[in-house]
């Protein structure tokens, strides 16, 4: 999902209104949530309420769907989304140590965002690049054959 941080709040709200006016039936709820998150980088509560009203669902139903799926965030993410793969191959290749090294370097736990809003650290069940294990994604770029030191170096380059 491409983020559109550069857009102004007003432009994003306008795009969201256009999204909403095109949505009609409850079957389109998940794509609508995905596009909303694409706009804002997360799912703001006011957007969820308006989606519910538009699709004639209760806010609880929409909230229920938004919290069921791992893709959706209810809080803004950092500028760089760092996703450490914890697939089987990465697990046996030491993914846990990559996560620990990054948690240490960023001073946050997995799932958290650095106070400067630069990095969000999270896990994924598998990216499917098993032969390059251990792997992490920063934004949409995958980095393979990591060591704790290499993983930290990747983030240092991004922080500049």
């Amino acid at each position: 999902m491409k983020s559109t941080i550069a857009k102004s709040d007003a432009a994003r709200d306008a795009a969201f209104r256009r999204l909403l006016s095109g949505a009609e039936e409850s079957g389109s709820l998940i794509p609508l949530l995905q596009k909303t998150q694409g706009l804002y980088g997360y799912l703001p509560e006011r957007a969820l309420v308006r989606i519910a009203r538009r699709l004639r669902l209760s806010p609880a139903q929409v909230y229920g769907v938004a919290t069921f799926y791992g893709q959706f965030r209810l809080r803004p993410a950092g500028r760089h989304l760092v996703t450490v793969c914890h697939g089987t191959a990465c697990h046996v290749a030491g993914a846990e140590r990559i996560s620990e090294a990054l948690e240490g370097a960023l001073g946050i736990r997995t799932g958290g965002t650095t106070p400067d809003g630069l990095f969000t650290l999270r896990n994924v069940a598998c990216l499917g690049c098993c032969s390059l294990a251990p792997v992490m994604m920063v934004g949409e770029t995958a980095h393979g054959r990591l060591t704790p030191a290499k993983a930290k170096a990747v983030l240092r380059r991004r922080a500049r």
Binding site: L29, I30, L33, F68, Q71
Partner: peptide, 18 residues
């Protein structure tokens, strides 16, 4: 949208239905 259980066919359909 990132739910392993959606590989199961009835769960997949529920997800398609929103």
């Amino acid at each position: 949208a990132g739910a392993f259980v959606c590989g199961e066919e009835t769960a997949l359909i529920a997800s398609l239905e929103g």
